[in-house]
């Protein structure tokens, strides 16, 4: 529906848009001529190598996966991996151009060939697989449950007939209502409301993505993540444009070969541990060699 509208309006908009500002509309030289297709042709591995830099889409405000530090430098778990890709492709970790993307436009960046790879905490879903090609995963997320130290919940059976706080529309809501009807759910629209409710004792525990609750518990004394991993395991993987097979295969090979040096454990230590602390088990988050 929305896509139909967009395509329909595209003609008018472009014609009028170019008319309105034709003086600035410069088509970049070197854009290969090709027949109209739903996506612009992505650069192949050879073209990237020839160009000498790779363009990787990352988040710039999702600490600790991709964020900009106070000196304006891009950092994080995804970025650390992105630099390594550049190093293994070109021999220098500076040969990467990080493009700051938003969650909503990650697929579009690939389809319009504005980036070569997306490394933006991109969770693998069946719906997304129809739009882009995912390489092997380098991280996994599940649900976590945080509760007060005084009445720590360390197993899901302890939650029977107790109140669990969730945020509407999250995987936690779906998972617990489908698989654990014996647990009473208290639902909120906003994360902040949910955390406030937990702090006030309106519920016995709170559940959402484990990466989120782990980070929160570190900053809030008296609360601990008693269950670090529960529910369906989601994986996070690099994505390339659909059909960009060479690049996809290179990435898969890269991820496999990095397992030998336990690269993602090193990545975890550098970027996630400062946030999550050393009490939690990296094995709940890190994936090596694409082996979940």
């Amino acid at each position: 529906m929305k896509k139909g509208l967009l395509s329909a309006l595209l003609g008018i908009t472009m014609a009028a848009g170019l008319l309105a500002g034709c003086s600035q509309a410069k088509a970049p030289a070197g854009a290969p001529a090709q027949e109209a297709s739903p996506s612009a042709k992505a650069r192949s591995l050879d073209e990237i190598k020839k160009a000498g830099t790779i363009r990787i889409g990352v988040f710039s405000d999702k600490n600790p996966f991709g964020y900009v530090d106070s000196n304006g430098k891009i950092q994080g778990y995804d970025v650390y991996f992105g630099k390594r890709i550049a190093k293994d492709l070109f021999g220098s970790e500076d040969k990467v151009e990080f493009v700051y993307v938003e969650a909503a436009s990650r697929v579009e960046y690939l389809k319009s060939a504005k980036v070569d790879v997306i490394l933006a905490n991109f969770t693998v879903t069946n719906e997304r697989k129809e739009q882009v090609d995912f390489a092997l995963p380098y991280m996994k997320v599940a649900l976590g449950v945080v509760s007060p130290d005084k009445a720590l919940i360390s197993d899901v059976s302890q939650l029977k007939d107790k109140t669990l706080i969730v945020v509407k529309g999250t995987t936690a809501e779906t998972y617990f209502s489908q698989n654990h009807p014996e647990i009473k759910l208290l639902k909120f629209d906003e994360y902040q409301e949910a955390y406030d409710a937990l702090a006030d004792g309106r519920g016995d525990a709170f559940s959402t993505d484990n990466t989120e609750v782990l980070a929160w518990a570190i900053q809030n004394k008296g609360f601990t993540v008693g269950i670090e991993s529960i529910g369906n395991l989601d994986t996070i993987a690099p994505a390339v444009q659909k059909g960009n097979t060479e690049l996809l295969e290179w990435l898969n090979g890269e991820i496999k070969s990095l397992a030998g040096e336990q690269f993602f454990h090193q990545d975890y230590k550098e970027t996630l541990e400062p946030v999550y602390g050393d009490e939690i088990d990296p094995e709940n988050l890190v994936v090596e060699g694409g082996q979940v």
């Binding site: 309006l9 908009t13 472009m14 848009g17 088509a27 970049p28 739903p38 612009a40 579009e108 319009s112």
Partner: peptide, 29 residues
């Protein structure tokens, strides 16, 4: 409009505009 010009132009017309150019086009339009 921004999406159409920035992503749409690249996908359908192979015109790869920078974000700034696309923004100026849309705001001028």
């Amino acid at each position: 409009l921004l999406f159409l010009v920035y992503f749409g132009a690249a996908k359908h017309l192979n015109v790869n505009l920078s974000g700034g150019t696309a923004a100026v086009l849309v705001f001028t339009f």
